[in-house]
Simulated assay, not measured.
Amino acid sequence: MTFNIIEKESEIFLRITDQGSGIVPHDVKRVFDPFFTGENGRVKQESTGMGLYLVKEIVNRLGHVVTIQSTVSEGTTVEFSLRQIPYMKGDRIVRVLNDYVINFDGSLPLYSLYLR
């Protein structure tokens, strides 16, 4: 599994990619539907159909976007597009993701997430 954070203009993109079995194309369209259990979930009988629905609901209510792309036998990528608003705090730029604050001072390769 890989995690990538990409900053572009007023958004931060968090991409989570696995190299699992993937999701069949006709299921990808419905994975965010409540109680939807795709082909993989029905075979393995470990799915409630609520996980990705809840993720999308929470992300949308926070004003962000979540998308999913998948290829059978190759894996799945879930991408979160997080809107940010930059402002200055002292001598550093701070970006606000709704009620979440991302501190980026340019000297660190990673972001720090602070919850208020």
Rank of each mutant, 00 (worst) to 15 (best):
Arg83Val: 08
Thr77Ile: 12
Leu113Pro: 05
Leu82Glu: 08
Leu108Lys: 15
Thr48Lys: 04
Arg42His: 07
Phe32Met: 02
Thr77Val: 09
Leu113Cys: 04
Pro34Glu: 07
Asn40Met: 05
His64Cys: 08
Thr2Arg: 13
Arg92Asp: 06
Ile16Tyr: 00
Ser10Phe: 10
Val28Arg: 05
His64Ser: 03
Asn98Met: 06
Met50Glu: 00
Tyr111Trp: 11
Ile93His: 08
Asn98Ala: 11
Asp33Ser: 14
Val28Glu: 00
Ser112Pro: 08
Arg15Ile: 08
Gly22Gln: 01
Leu62Asp: 03
Val65Phe: 03
Val31Gln: 03
His64Phe: 15
Gly75His: 12
Pro109Asn: 07
Val43Trp: 07
Tyr87Ile: 07
Glu79Tyr: 02
Gln45Val: 06
Asp18Gly: 05
Thr76Leu: 11
Ser112Trp: 06
Thr71His: 10
Thr48Ser: 05
Gly41Arg: 04
Val72Met: 02
Gly90Gln: 08
Ile85Gln: 14
Gly106His: 09
Ser70Tyr: 02
Gly106Pro: 01
Gly90Lys: 08
Arg116Val: 06
Asp18Met: 03
Lys29Ser: 12
Lys56Thr: 02
Asn98Leu: 11
Met50Trp: 00
Phe3His: 11
Phe80His: 02
His26Glu: 15
Val72Trp: 06
Ser21Pro: 08
Val31Glu: 01
Leu82Thr: 13
Ile23Met: 04
Gly75Lys: 10
Val43Ala: 13
Ser70Val: 07
Ser70Gln: 03
Phe104Asp: 14
Val94His: 13
Glu39Ala: 09
Phe13His: 14
Val65Asp: 03
Thr48Asp: 12
Phe3Pro: 05
Phe3Trp: 15
Glu57Gln: 04
Lys89Glu: 15
Glu11Phe: 11
Arg95Ile: 13
Gly22His: 03
Tyr111Lys: 10
Leu52Asp: 00
Pro25Gly: 02
Arg92His: 06
Thr2Gln: 14
Ile12Met: 04
Ser73Thr: 15
Gly90Cys: 08
Lys44Met: 11
Phe3Asp: 13
Thr17Cys: 14
Arg42Thr: 12
Leu108Asp: 13
Ile93Leu: 12
Val65Ser: 05
Val96His: 14
Tyr87Thr: 08
Val24Thr: 13
Arg42Phe: 01
Asn40Cys: 11
Gly49Thr: 00
Asn103Tyr: 11
Leu108Arg: 10
Asn40Ala: 08
Leu97Cys: 15
Val24Asn: 07
Ser21Lys: 12
Arg30Thr: 02
Ser107Leu: 10
Leu108Gly: 12
Gly22Met: 03
Gly22Cys: 02
